[in-house]
Design a protein around this nucleic acid. Structure first.
Lengths: 227, 227
DNA sequence: GTCTATATCTCGATAGAC
DNA sequence: GTCTATCGAGATATAGAC
């Protein structure tokens, strides 16, 4: 971390308020979208005055942009490349699922914001996600690469890696988006949320590994996807 | 359908305008949420005047409520009990996935509205979904019941039916929520959308059936997967 | 039933005191 | 840096002509 020569106390105060605002804005934006969010809601949640929002971030649009940057940086930081070391595909898959679910569970507002953005058209989200994917050790890319490798080594059967990725990510994320209904439907999910989430990791990992077991014989339909 | 004694022409005209408004409102609400939507956007999309919205549905809140009822009725109507006749679980699963994906693809706004509602707290959505689930031939309930039966008959292995349901629904729906990014990531999904969707059905059905094979049977004797 | 014109109010943004 | 007070744009909602 680089150190500024600005007096420490002032800097910390600014950082604190700024971060408090960003966190509050993230919560509100992620639930109501950019247009639906109210500046006074954000101010209230941050425990400050409405005018202070405009002092730190001139406009609502500006604040939204900064929140988006803030979210992306959270995504980048949280998804460390702990996948690199996985000795085999099964370990990679289980680690990926566990990490992914923990991240979503611990950063619900981040995921909600991404989804909200997509529902509103996704112009802001898509380019950012694409550029995150470019990076060689991006977890999504790593997952696809390792899936291909494992298949060509015969560790798992050949499957469309993108379809598989979509299935894994969907199965990790969607549950949290519709949690109110799942909670109403499945008592355990509401009463013992943490336990249910651990069971979900287990269930998903098992289910996917079983579905990826190599066949003795028959070949499955596998469309060509490579560039 | 009960028939009114109101003159047919008038009734039809009202129904048409009302339905046009509801469809337009559904589109806008589903992308921007209740607070983010603008009445004039809805009017423009419906091709009518802003004042007419207030003639048919007194307030914005009132309109939103009616849109929600409208969506629920769509859900109920579209999910006919075509699952009832499935002779075995594999047929049921494949039919369920195919129907579900077709419905989502053909009613994106409906699904978006449900998700938007959930992101905003879900107070409106959850009770409605719960009461839909009560019905004996509700597809989600039917799925859980048939999954249990099939497991106790030994047709598939024992799995947590709710975890499985969550996985299936997630895998059918989430793709469409983040379509902008998937389209950017996977060229085929954008250029040959319909084909990609058919492949998705196939991929998902195969994957799930494989993961549900009873433990005793080895992978050397796989049931045929292609129609 | 449908429109134009207008009233009313809410929200984003600014000015200015402390 | 933080607040109170307020302005002005834009939104919902209504009045009234056709």
């Amino acid at each position: 971390m680089p150190e500024s020569d600005t007096p420490q106390k002032t800097l910390d105060a600014e950082r604190d308020t700024e971060e408090k605002i960003l966190e509050a804005a993230l919560q509100i934006f992620s639930m109501k979208g950019k247009d639906g969010a109210r500046m006074h809601e954000i101010a209230d949640l941050a425990g400050i005055n409405k005018a202070l929002l405009h002092y730190y971030f001139r406009t609502k649009d500006g604040l939204y942009d900064k929140v988006f940057e803030y979210v992306i940086s959270k995504l980048v930081r949280s998804f460390g490349s702990s996948l690199q070391d996985a000795p085999d595909f099964e370990t990679l898959l289980r680690t990926f699922i566990s990490n992914y679910i923990d991240f979503v569970n611990g950063n619900l507002a981040v995921v909600r914001l991404m989804v909200t953005e997509h529902l509103a058209g996704g112009e802001r989200a898509t380019p950012r996600i694409m550029s995150m994917m470019q990076s060689a050790n991006a977890p999504l890319r790593l997952f696809v690469d390792r899936l291909r490798e494992a298949a060509s080594r015969g560790e798992i059967r050949h499957v469309d890696p993108y379809q598989t990725l979509i299935t894994v990510v969907s199965s990790c994320v969607f549950f949290f988006l519709v949690y109110p209904t799942v909670g109403a439907l499945v008592p355990l999910a509401r009463e013992q949320r943490d336990q249910f989430i651990e069971e979900r990791k287990q269930h998903l990992s098992d289910m996917l590994m079983r579905s990826l077991q190599p066949d003795g014989e028959s070949s499955t339909h596998m469309p060509p996807v490579d560039p």
